[in-house]
C-alpha cells in the first residue's frame, strides 16, 4: 500500500462547550506548561442585557495553519511544520526573538521565560505519533473536540466537515487555519 499523506486538524463544536477548562488543565499537565502560560484557552463572548442575554464559549489554540506565518518569519528555521501539518518549535534552534509571536494572528504562542524560547500547542505530537489523540481532545467531557486526519475518508472529522457547516477564524490573513468551528 502506498504511503498515505496525512493532514491533522481539529474540529470544534463550540456550542457544546461548557467552559469547564478541563482541556486547559489537561494540556498543562500533559505538556508541563509553566505557571502563567497556556497552550490553549477558552474565549468568552457575552452579549445582550438581562434578561435577554447569551454567552458563547469558544476554545482556541494553535491553528496549525496550512501556510503558517510563524514559520515564514522565523529567522533560524526553529519554527517548522511537519509533513502532517503539525507546526512545532525546535527548542535548540530557537533564539527567543519572538518574531513568530508577533506574526501569529491568533496569539497562540507564549514565551517560556525560564528557557528563553517560544513554545506552543504541539497537537500533542508525542501522543499522536503513538496513535493516541491530543490530551485536550481526550479529556473534554462534553465532546467538543474531534481530532483527526483530513486525508482519511473514514475519520469522524471527515464526516463532520462533509455534513456540517463550519467556519475558520480570520481566513483573510492567508494562513489557512486548521481549526474548524462547527456552526
Amino acid at each position: 500500500m502506498a504511503i498515505k499523506k496525512k493532514r491533522y486538524a481539529l474540529v470544534i463544536d463550540s456550542r457544546k462547550c461548557i467552559n469547564c477548562k478541563a482541556c486547559v488543565v489537561a494540556c498543562k499537565a500533559e505538556n508541563k506548561v509553566p505557571v502563567g502560560n497556556f497552550r490553549n484557552r477558552i474565549n468568552e463572548e457575552r452579549k445582550g442585557e438581562y434578561p435577554k442575554l447569551s454567552i458563547n464559549f469558544e476554545p482556541e489554540q494553535c491553528h496549525h495553519c496550512a501556510d503558517p506565518s510563524c514559520v515564514r518569519v522565523c529567522p533560524t528555521g526553529a519554527s517548522w511544520q511537519r509533513k502532517d501539518g503539525i507546526v512545532l518549535v525546535n527548542y535548540d534552534e530557537c533564539i527567543g526573538c519572538r518574531y513568530c509571536m508577533v506574526a501569529c494572528p491568533y496569539d497562540a504562542r507564549y514565551f517560556n521565560e525560564e528557557e528563553g524560547v517560544v513554545d506552543k500547542c504541539t497537537f500533542c505530537s508525542h501522543r499522536v505519533d503513538k496513535g493516541d489523540i491530543p490530551a485536550c481532545v481526550e479529556t473534554c467531557p462534553s465532546k467538543v473536540r474531534v481530532f483527526g486526519d483530513l486525508e482519511d475518508p473514514t475519520a469522524r472529522i471527515h464526516e463532520l466537515l462533509s455534513t456540517r457547516r463550519y467556519r475558520v477564524k480570520e481566513p483573510q490573513t492567508g494562513n489557512g487555519p486548521q481549526l474548524y468551528y462547527l456552526l
Binding site: I95, C97, F111, G116, V117
Partner: peptide, 9 residues
C-alpha cells in the same frame, strides 16, 4: 533575545 548567546544561529 531569550537566549542571547544563540544569536550566532
Amino acid at each position: 533575545l531569550g537566549n542571547w548567546y544563540r544569536f550566532y544561529k
